[in-house]
Each structure stands twice: as C-alpha cells, then as structure tokens.
Amino acid sequence: MIAYVLRRLVYGFATVLGVLLFLFFLFFLYASPEDIARRAIGEKAPPAAIEQWIANHGYDRPLVWNPEDPTDSLLVEHFRRMLTFDFGRSDADDVPIRQRLAEGAGPSLALMVPLFLFELLVSVTLGLFVATFRETYIDRAGVAICVFAMSVSILLYIIGGQYLVGRVLNWFPVSGWDASPSVIARFLALPVIVGVLASFGEQVRFYRTVFVEETARDYVRTARAKGCGDARVMWRHVLPNAMIPILTQVVVAIPFLFTGSILLESFFGIPGLGSMTVDAIQGNDFATLRVMVFIGSLLFILAQIATDVLYTLADPRVRLE
C-alpha cells in the first residue's frame, strides 16, 4: 500500500512535469514573449516599449539553453518558479501571484465548499430517490427533468437567477462581497442556489444510473428477502456499494474547490480565484493563467491518489499494489 502510494506519487510528479512542459510549450514557444508583450500593451506598441516590457517581466532570457549559465533560461526559470511555489509576478500589474492566490483562495472556498456539499447532498438524495422508483412514472419524469435541466446553459441559470431573485423578488443582493461572517451568507446564497440548479441535472442522472445499476445486483435481492425496506436497502446497501463511482465523481470536483468557479464568481462579484482567472483572460495575464492551470492539475493529481486510497476504505475488495 505504501509502496503503491509512493509509486503513484512518483508518477504524479512526472505528470506535473508533463503539465509544466506543456505550459512551457504553449506560453513560451507557441506564444512567444514578444506575442505576449504585444497583447499586453497593444498590437501597435513601439518595439522599444515591447523590449522594455519583456525585460521588466524577466522574459529577456534565452528560451531553453543559456550557454553562459545553464541555470538561467526561461525553461529553467519556469520550472523553478512553479515547483517552488514562487510563481513570480502577474504580467498585468506586477503583483506577486502568490499574494493573489492567498487573497482569492478564501472567497473561492467560501463559495465552493457549501456549493459542493449542497450539490452532493441534493444529487445523491435525488438520485437515490429516483432510483428507488425506477421503472415508474416518477423515474421517467425525473430523468426527463434532468435532461431538460442539463440542456439549459449555465449562463441562463445565472442570468435568470439574478434577474428573478435579485430584481423581481428582491430577496438577496445580486452580487457583491463582504467577508464578515454575519453577512457573507447573503452574498453566497444566490450563487450557491444557481450553482446547484445548474449542475443537478447531470449529477442526478449520473447518480441515478449508478444506483439503478447497483440495485439490480443479487445482494440487493438478499437484503429485501431478509426484510429490509426500500429506504434501508438504498441507504445501507446500495449507497455504500456505490461509493466507488461516487468517490470518483467527488474527487474530480476537489480541485475546483480551490480554483473556484469562473462563471459564478465573476457573475456574482466574488473576489475568488475564478474572478482572478477572468481578470487574467481580460488582461492577457499569461503568468497568472499558467499558475492557475498548474495548481488545478496539481490538485487533481493529488486528489486522484487520494481517491485510490479512499477506494480501499470504501470497498474491502480493493487492494492497492
């Protein structure tokens, strides 16, 4: 088990290096520092200004190989910054990216953790409910509603939610941010509701499929034969057996708890990492974008290893080797 985890960590590290290489290719080789400078300060900027920008942002080094000092090239610098979590400065306004990350993580977590928990609770419960009534009109109606909900773009949920709740009903503030504990919930309520609405269709349908598949198994018949009721069968037998697909689904979401929701945050003015990403897009801030992608995949890789370990808890048959 420990050997397995170690091996996974080594492979994960290799994957991280792969991601960094990919980012280097994308942001240094494909889009050269010159391109980036031009996008940052304008297509028609004088060459001197562009050179100045490149120098200011430390992009004025050899790309891959510096014959004088092999440790001093953009490639080495890129890897060094990422792997030491230094991250450098924003291309847009020179603020250290680490500082930005530290500021944005709080609001992102404040939005994403409740959203994630609600989503999980709602979709697992509804999934179990619909699966309990499989092959009946409740099930068919449930699936139809899910497909319907899935077909609406998340933007419409956001626009509709803002319009309806904020303007017509005047229930919550439409957008804004105040991190003091007494009012934070008011700013989070609408984005959380919208987030749950936007995702429940797909999620409920997924869990329904998992549960229905699981309900067809023989041990479920055994449980019924010994006198378990529907609810008990679903919660005590089907749900624990469905833990593996559920865990897989849950863990995939974990990186987003930190990187935040790009759409929800920027729509509702929550100053988290999602908003930061949007600012980076609008400000052609490639440095920040690189860091976001890097952190996202780092978390994803760690979460995947965690999933494998959790599998052994969820299912005694799973042996890691």
Partner: peptide
C-alpha cells in the same frame, strides 16, 4: 497513456482558456 493523463489532469475549462489565449 502519459500524454493522456497529463492532458486530463488539467481542469478542462482552464486548459481551454489557456489554449485559446495562446492560440
């Protein structure tokens, strides 16, 4: 397999944005 797991490890929307920014 390595290339696929590398690509799959990046969050889709972020990767998409990064690609479009570069391309």
């Amino acid at each position: 397999f390595f290339v696929m797991s590398t690509l799959a490890s990046m969050p889709t929307l972020l990767l998409l944005i990064a690609l479009i920014m570069a391309l």
